[in-house]
Each structure stands twice: as C-alpha cells, then as structure tokens.
Design a binder for these strands. Structure first.
Lengths: 204, 204, 204, 204
DNA sequence: GATGAATGAGGCTTCATTCAT
DNA sequence: AATGAATGAAGCCTCATTCAT
C-alpha cells in the first residue's frame, strides 16, 4: 500500500489549505501554527518538517491558493472573437467572476493589503503574474476596439486597469460590508459593464 | 503656566498619533505598545493611564485619524450648484482627493481591511459615517441629474457606489504597487471622470 | 524607603550569581533560564528585562564572576621586594591560590574550555585581562632574577607561562578527578615551587 | 562481494567518526544527530539502529576515539633502557607527543572537561586507562632514578603527575589561544624537559 | 538493515498588562 | 499623573526519538 507515500505527497497541500483557513480567520500574526496543525490533523512538528518558518507557511499558502487563479486567462483571451465590445464584455464577465466571487481570490487580495509590507516578494509576484497580465488583456482588447472604431480614444484608455475597478469595489465591499449590506453581484456586474461600455464606447 | 496643563491635555492625541505611525508600519499585532510609547515620548504606563488596552488604543486611533475626514462633506454638497454634470464632477474631485491622496484615509482603509474582523464596530462606524453619506451624496446628484435629463437612467444608477470605484483602485494601487509603478493621480482622476460622465450621460 | 530602587540595582548581579550556579551545574546549553530565574527568585521575564538573550546572560555572568579575580595583581607584584627567588615564590603562591582554590576561577576556566568556541570574545577578553598580565608578571620576575644572577638563562625562561602549568594541572585535576582522588593543594604547591626553583635556579 | 558486508561492519565506526567531528564543532548539547547522520552519509534512523540514544553515541564516540591513544605505552616504557634521565626524557617526549599534538587526545580532554559531569563513567574510565597508567610510568621512572642516585628525592616526586603539567598547558593553550598566539611545541617541549630535569635532578 | 515522516515535549523569547513608588 | 520594573501567558521553533514501510 502506498498509504504512507500518498499521505506524504499530499501533506504540504493539506497543511497549506488548513493554513489558508486559519490565516483568513485570524490574520497572519494572530494565527497559531498549532491551530493550523490541528486543522490539518497533524502536529506542530510536521509543519516544520515541510516549511521552515511561519512566514514560509504563509508565503507558500498564498502562492498555493493563487496558483489556480488565472491559468486559462491567456487561452481564454485568445479565444475571443467577434466585435470588440463583445470581447470586452466577455472578458469582464470572466475576470469579475474570479475577482468578486472566488473566495481564495478575495482573501488573497486581503492578505496582500494586510501583510504586503511584510511580504514584498508576494506583492511583486502577484503584480507580475496576475495584475499585469489581466491589465494587458484589457488593454489589448480596448486598443483593438479603438483601432476597429468601436471604442473612442479617451483618457481612460491610458488606464486599462480602470476596467477592473468596479470588480475591486465589489470584492472589498463583500469583505467589509458583506454582512451588513450585500450587493447583488450579477446586477452590479451588469451595471458595471453598461457603464464601462458607454464610457468607452462611441456616442450612439 | 498652562504649559503643563496643555501638555496633559494633548497627551492622548500625541499617543494616538504615535500609535498611527506604528500601526501603519507594522500592523496591529506586530506593533508593540512600547514603541508607541517611545514615539510619543512617554512610557508604557502612561498609555495605560489613558487607554484600557491595546485594542482601545487602536480603536481610538482609527477614530481619531478619520475624524477629520469628511466634516465638510454635507456643506460642500449643499453648496453645489449648476448643471448636475458639473456638480458630479466637483463632487468626484472633492472625494477622490480625500480617498486617493490623503495618507490617513488610505491607511484607515487598510486598517479596516486588515483588522476589520477583529474590530467590527470600527467597520460599522465607518460605514455609517463615511461610506453611506458619501454614497448618498453621489446618489442624490445622480438622481437629480436623471430627473433633470442630464443623465440616463441606467443600471449603474442603482449602484451609486460605483462612482467611487476608480478612487478605490487608485488608493489600493498606491498601497500595493506604489513603489513599483506610480499612477498619475490627476490624469487618472480626469480619465475616471471622463469615463463616468460618458457612462452615465446621455448619448450626444 | 528605597526598597524598590535598591532591589533594582541589585537584580542584575543576583541574576548573574544565580546563572553562575546553574551554568556550573549543567553547562551552557542544558541550563534553562527558567531555573536561573527561580534561583534568583524572579520570573523568566525579569531576566529578559536585564539581558537580551541567554547568550548575553552567560557572557555577562562570566565577566561578572571574573571581574574580582586579579584586581590587585599589579599592585601586589609591585610590592614585591628582596631576592628574586623570594619574589617568584611569593608570586606563585599568590597566583596559585587564585587559580587552584578559587571556585569562580576554576569554573571560569571550565566555561572557557567548554564554550570558548561559542564565545570567542570571552576568550579574547580573558587572554588580555588575565592570562597575559599574569604571564607578564612572571616574565618580569624571572628576567629580573636572571639579570641579578639568581636564575639561569634557560630555554624555559622563554616560556614564562610554564610556571603556571602546575596550577593548571591542579585546577583541572580538581575539576575532573576531585571526587576520586584529591590532591593536597598545599603540598602540591610546595612541590611545584621546589621543582620550579630548582629548574630555573643556578646549580648550587 | 563483501563490499556490502564490509560497509555494514564499518558503519558504527563511520558514525562515531562523524559524531566526533560534529561534537568537536558544537559541543554535546548543540550537536544534532541529524548532522552526524548527514556527515556519515546515513539517515537518523540508522544511527538509532546502532546506538540507543544520543548519550550513547557520545559515550561510545569518546571511547572509540581514545582507544588508540596509548596502546603501546607499557611496551614502550618497558623498552626503555640506560640512564633514568634518558628514560624520563624519552617518556616525556613520547607522552607529550600524544597529549599536545594529537587532535583526538586534545578534543577528548575538552570533552571530559566540558561534559564530564554528565558522563562520570567516561571520566572514571579515562582516569583508569590513561591518567593513572601514565602517571604510574612516570612515577616508576622517577623512583628508579632516585634509587639510582640520578634524581634527588624532592617534594615533587610525590606528585609524578606534575611532569605532565606542561603538556597540559600546551594542550589547553592550543585549544583556547591557538588562533591568537601559537606556542612552538618543540621548543616548549625542550624547555619543559630542561626545567623538569633540572628541577628533579641532583645539583651539578 | 535502512529510511525518513511524524511526534511532542521543552526551551527561548516576546509583550500586553499590572502596580508599587 | 507618570514611571518602569516585574509578571506570566503564549507562541515559535528545535530536535531526540519512534515506527510504519
């Protein structure tokens, strides 16, 4: 039986998943590795067998959790066809779905904001791997749309990240005020798309 | 001499200002009251004379720092005149200036995101005092603009907070990536206004 | 009452004295600061109020304990008069008394041997403050004796430290085999002096 | 092939040799069995196959390393002929060579001093196997020399171990101050012999 | 025989909090 | 009011030891 070997191969991921939950619940500093261990059904020592320090657990946990975030972004973007308005619409829906609805994505954002100064490498990495590629895709579609005469060349096209801003608002809102006043994600997304399309588009 | 008395009266504020700097630098958990004391040129014991616990220091520090944020919002909003597009423009400029450029505002936002779950009252209070009033002002201008025929009734008008989203992006961007890639605040604000105006406005 | 202040001034020395006993009993690594604290009738935290780390406790303990070792060496050496044989005799008795009989001196030697590689500064300091000055005094008396025609110029006079060697043997012997076979310190000292005097002296 | 079997037979010695190096480097407590294992190119588990505990590893390592120290002492001593001064001279050279120059001997001495109280059996064993036999040989030669009229009956002859003391000084000196000020072993040995011969000998 | 994943007791260190002065 | 010495709970991390494979 490969029971032992199988367990071993899975241990790190199990620990990182447990760490995610605990860090989400308490933040970096207030999380005890002992609790992470208990949640992963191992002992403290086991964590240190796989990770050097608490910082490393956190760091690798964030990497682990954001690994699956946008693997298909480029292929998805490449698959887009038809009018640029339609492409942009599809891309926004695709990205907003991740940002606003995916729990791991939302909490990763919170981690970056809360602990970014302690983990500058993490911030760099996320900028390079997620922020910049996403912005580049938006930029590419918008520029294409301008070239095709579907969008107007406006000041906003110099800031393609602006397209992301409603998603960011949504994400932060659910973090902070989700329990107080829920925002209807679908309606908000629709509203954002409407606003952005009008804002970027040519006058009718 | 009132010097002594004046100093005494100023102590709490001095402590909270020192606390702000330390909490900004290290986050809630990693900040030592001893360092706060040193920065405020008092001793630990003095802090405990004015504040019951570290949590209270943090809580009151956030209140103290956000007190000055929007005292004039309502009077400013009431003073707005002329076409609604112009009013909205002015309001956006007014609010963006606070959100995106004011250090205390930016760090308060970070505190809420990072420590919000430990300080739910703080979140509630900020929602009631800042988020809701600001959104209400925007809502009021937008609704006025629709009634006046200056804006179209669009899905976005159901989410007046959407007007804030570029400012939020700007604020978070400077938190996270400010050292990596700076965004030109003025140009970004102009671009956002352009986008929002077109997005909300009637077709030409 | 200065009770508190008085205690405070004495605390560090009390802690270092307690540390000496514990480190003697268990060695550096096997000593728990908690036991040091208990012996000093304080708590662990108090030790850290006065000393940064366990290493510092050890380091300062050794300094503290060896401080009183040879304060009078130079004045004693200067006070020596009469024939050089007599001076050397007196100096040997003086130094052997310290090295072989003083518990703090013996244990300091053990600390240097056992933990020297972890505390190179300590070794340096003891070389400069104790070893070299003592050797210099011996060298000065021996050279004086040669000039005065009391001692012969022999190969051994190039190694004045050799005069210390019986004392060293005595010290190590009592460390290691003291419980097994005791050496009569007075008789051994006399024997050493006899040997050294004959060894350094002119043939009768 | 006996390769496998030979390796197996050599494992324990390889482990003890590795242990020697690590214990020398860090002392007993600060040495990790994991590092010993790595140096011996085995895993931790293997060490526990051959030795019950860390203490046993240390204990057997010291025995292993000091085994080869004086196997020929008695036969060498028996082979000595001629005048007793010459015999003593030869014996001193023989023993000093071991004590002062052999690394294993020097480090064993350090182990005994540093960890003796944790390993009293080790101290006993070394006393019985090395210290006493060596002293006995010196005693025998000195007593013979006195009977033969070559040495004078002096207080020092009651302490034959005194003959070892310069070697001890040399050994400790190289442990502690070897990197700071080297002592010329040959010259020091010559000086010691000169001193001892004069000290023990009859007046010319 | 050998491996190395897993355990868990134990020690160093930190720091919010207290309180005698 | 203010001080700062003292406390002690709590958490990170180490590593000797075990044992399933």
């Amino acid at each position: 039986m490969k029971k032992r070997a199988r367990r071993k191969a899975e241990r790190p991921a199990e620990i990182l998943d447990a760490a995610f939950e605990e860090f989400v619940k308490n933040g970096y500093a207030a999380t005890r590795l002992e609790d992470v261990a208990a949640r992963a059904s191992v002992t403290k020592g086991t964590i240190y067998f796989y990770f050097e320090t608490k910082e490393r657990v956190f760091d690798e946990m964030v990497r682990h959790k954001s690994r699956a975030l946008f693997p298909e972004l480029e292929s998805y973007a490449r698959s887009l066809e038809g009018p640029y308005k339609q492409r942009l619409h599809a891309l926004i829906v695709f990205v907003y779905g991740k940002i606003a609805e995916d729990r791991a994505a939302r909490e990763t954002l919170r981690f970056l904001i809360a602990e970014g100064s302690r983990f500058p490498d993490l911030v760099d990495r996320h900028y390079d791997e997620f922020v910049e590629p996403v912005i580049d895709q938006f930029k590419s579609v918008i520029d294409g749309g301008i070239a095709a005469g579907e969008f107007r060349a406006s000041p906003a096209t110099a800031f393609p990240e602006i397209v992301m801003s409603p998603a960011l608002l949504l994400s932060l809102w659910s973090m902070l005020f989700g329990t107080r006043r829920q925002i209807d994600v679908a309606a908000f997304t629709d509203a954002s798309i409407d606003l952005l399309m009008k804002g970027l588009g040519l006058p009718d």
